Simulated scan of single mutants.
Amino acid sequence: MKRSAAKRERAEKQGRRAESIAAGWLRLHGWRILGQRVRTAHGEVDVIAKRAGLVAFVEVKARTKAEDLETAIDHHRLKRVAAAAEILYPDYCKNGEDARIDVILVAPRRLPTHLTNVWHGF
Rank of each mutant, 00 (worst) to 15 (best):
V55E: 11
A84F: 02
F122D: 01
L78T: 03
I104T: 06
A52M: 13
P108F: 06
H120T: 14
T71S: 08
S4C: 00
Q14D: 11
V55Y: 04
H29R: 15
A52I: 10
R100I: 09
A72C: 04
K50S: 11
R77T: 09
A5T: 02
L34G: 03
Q36N: 07
G30A: 12
K2T: 05
K65R: 13
T71I: 00
C93H: 08
M1H: 05
K61E: 04
E67T: 14
A83G: 07
P108I: 01
F122R: 15
W25M: 09
W25C: 07
V58S: 05
C93S: 13
C93V: 11
P90G: 10
L78F: 02
S4R: 13
D98M: 12
I21P: 12
K61Q: 09
V81K: 04
E19N: 02
V58P: 00
L105K: 14
A41E: 12
R77F: 03
A52N: 15
E59M: 09
V106L: 06
I104D: 10
K2N: 05
L88I: 07
I73Y: 08
P112M: 01
R39K: 11
A6M: 06
H29N: 14
K94V: 12
D102H: 02
V55K: 07
P108M: 03
A66S: 14
N117H: 12
T116C: 05
H120D: 12
S4H: 10
D91K: 15
G30R: 07
G24D: 10
R77H: 07
K2Y: 08
T71M: 01
A62G: 06
L88K: 01
A62S: 13
Q14F: 10
E44S: 05
R109Y: 12
T64W: 15
V81P: 11
E86Y: 11
V118K: 15
G121D: 15
R80Y: 10
A84P: 00
D91I: 11
R17W: 15
N95L: 13
V81H: 03
W31K: 00
K13H: 05
S20M: 07
W25S: 05
G121L: 15
L88F: 03
H76T: 12
P90H: 14
A5I: 01
L111M: 13
G53I: 06
Y92R: 11
A62K: 10
A72K: 01
K61D: 04
L54I: 04
A23I: 08
G35P: 05
L26H: 03
V58K: 01
H75L: 09
R37T: 14
H76N: 10
V118P: 06
V60P: 05
